[in-house]
Simulated assay, not measured.
Amino acid sequence: MKSEILILGSTGSIGYAFTENLISKNIPVTILVRDLEKAQNLFAGSTSVEIIKGDVQDLALLKEVAKDKKVIFHGINYPYNKWFGNMDLATEKVIEAASVNNAMIIFPANVYNYGTLPIIKEDSIENPCSKKGALRVEIEQMLRDAAKVGKCKVLNVCLPDFWGPNVLNEGIRPVFENALKGKALPYMVRTDIPHQLVFTKDAAEMMVRLMQRGLAQPYEKHNYGGQVQPNMKSFLNRISRLANAPEKISIFPKWMFSILGLFMPMLKEVKEMLYLFDGTVILDDSKVRSIFPDFRETPLDEAILETLNWFKKRK
């Protein structure tokens, strides 16, 4: 069966989970990757994946690969310090590629658009309090505008912080690696308040369900929040226990990012996002849960053990 789905960002956190979900359902996919070896290692043994080497910024190649696709998963991401001039340009090119076949773009969004708003609904007013949040607002407006004029269809799925296999950002990777080494688990700012997190496999399942359901409108936005942890201390200690490690946590305060940001561009960019760890922001996902009342998250201990095992095999 020929693939009708193009996945961009398949070797990244959420793109990997989305790809794996479709593979598990025997749905063929095409992935466009810069790192061919990494992709071959991640999806070794799968006969459902067509791997094409290339860069999303190569518009001619992207349009050629996308010309017969009905769905394009836009999971492209860059390091924080490379967002500007890359994330927006990549999105413009994804829209152009989708316009060839009026494809559906699936866009995993985040909460940055809404600043410190404590409860976020699909129709909440966007009010970013960071440069990166302002950029996300611009990107989502690009997608809305493209859908409005008929260039493509857009399924926008807003997610909170995510964790799981192949989530290698500096907020998650050291947590699981340190747990396996019996070291203190690092976390930012404070661990005594509720924090919403989504296991990437659950996010992928929700996005696949929405994709298969289809769109009633050219542009649809859905929140999916995963689970709210009562506090991060209990969540992190749970990881340590399941890894048979001591329950130890190392908290990095705000001032540390101010100092280290003077020398490390990436940490300077992280600094403006610390408000998300100093307060609680919750996605209201009652709409999507009403659409799929049978949906259930992966049991927490099962999800943690699966993630620990993935990182153990990666070593």
Rank of each mutant, 00 (worst) to 15 (best):
K183S: 12
L242W: 10
K63M: 08
C129Y: 08
P160N: 04
L236I: 04
V167A: 12
G45F: 04
A147E: 07
Y275P: 03
A39N: 08
Y112R: 10
Q227V: 14
K131D: 15
W83K: 01
V111P: 09
A98P: 05
A90P: 04
P253L: 02
T47F: 10
V94A: 02
K2C: 10
N244T: 06
I291N: 12
V167L: 10
E297Q: 11
G85E: 00
E50I: 15
V154N: 05
L180C: 11
R296M: 12
A146Q: 05
L61T: 02
M87L: 14
G214K: 15
E64I: 04
H195R: 13
S234K: 12
P28N: 11
F277S: 07
D202P: 08
P79T: 00
I139N: 01
L89K: 02
K132R: 09
E247M: 06
S234V: 11
M211V: 05
I239Q: 13
H74G: 00
D161F: 15
R190W: 11
E138A: 06
V198Y: 03
V111K: 03
N41I: 07
D68L: 13
L155S: 03
F252Q: 10
L260W: 09
A97H: 00
F311K: 13
R289T: 00
L185K: 10
A134I: 00
T47N: 15
G15D: 01
I95V: 01
E126N: 08
I249R: 05
R241W: 06
A39L: 10
I5T: 14
I172R: 11
L117N: 14
L210W: 02
V71L: 07
I251F: 06
G225R: 02
S24H: 14
V175Y: 09
E269D: 14
K38P: 08
C129H: 11
P246H: 03
I95P: 01
V49D: 07
A204L: 01
P293K: 05
L185I: 03
I282Y: 11
N223K: 08
